[in-house]
């Protein structure tokens, strides 16, 4: 299913990107623990190139062990641009509510448990995506802005990402990491679906990054 990575980036470029992601996600993990008082373990990120039309199936493959998932989606805009999809395993929302200990929780009206759950996913998603994308962009000397995050709570994993969600005829650079929270046990994946049009810039940025060390 996936294309040869070297069709888009050379193997050196992929290695460099991999290295940058290792640094970025390592740093974001430590920043995150400062902001949300728990350690988030991010796995070594994984890069893959997938046709946008196959993305739907690709994501499904990765979440097939879950029946229900929650998704936080946020667009990031810089020279580096695309969609971040944060996929949480079922039950994560409720785990994370305990973690955040917001002051407002006591004052919510009846029937708002769902609101609290979705808002918590949004907040944690926003922080996690921002930390990972922001660090990556920073290392590549880019500045990104974000659209407000959107959330789908506890959806059937098979239908959560619609097949026609992304612009076809494009190849997505998928940067994937698994994460889990040391407390609370919420787990999931982060996919950064980067648009093809970022590739030219990305090649240049990777080059510049390497030159610092040459």
């Amino acid at each position: 299913m996936s294309e040869q990575a070297t069709d888009i980036l050379s193997s050196d470029e992929v290695d460099t990107l991999q290295e940058i992601m290792n640094i970025a996600f390592g740093q974001s993990a430590s920043d995150l623990s400062e902001v949300i008082d728990t350690h988030v373990v991010l796995s070594i990120p994984f890069i893959e190139f997938v046709k946008v039309t196959e993305l739907h199936t690709y994501i499904q493959q990765h979440v097939k062990e879950y029946s229900k998932i929650s998704i936080v989606e946020q667009k990031y805009w810089g020279k580096f641009k695309g969609d971040a999809l944060l996929i949480f395993a079922s039950g994560a929302g409720r785990e994370l509510i305990l973690l955040l200990k917001n002051d407002e929780q006591g004052s919510l009206e009846a029937g708002s448990a769902e609101i609290l759950e979705s808002e918590t996913l949004l907040e944690v998603g926003n922080i996690l995506i921002g930390a990972c994308v922001g660090k990556l962009a920073e290392l590549l000397n880019d500045i990104v802005t974000y659209t407000p995050p959107m959330v789908l709570v506890e959806e059937d994993a098979r239908n959560a990402v619609p097949a026609n969600k992304f612009d076809p005829d494009q190849t997505a650079i998928i940067l994937k990491t698994d994460f889990n929270f040391e407390q609370g046990g919420a787990t999931g994946f982060l996919f950064l679906v980067t648009k093809n049009e970022s590739v030219v810039w990305l090649k240049k940025a990777l080059q510049l990054f390497l030159e610092q060390y040459e």
Binding site: L116, G130, A131, I143
Partner: peptide, 17 residues
């Protein structure tokens, strides 16, 4: 903190806040 430490954006929805 998340804005200052990693340039994040933060959102306060009316629903929750």
């Amino acid at each position: 903190k998340s804005v200052f430490s990693f340039g994040n954006f933060s959102f306060f929805s009316q629903k929750l806040h």
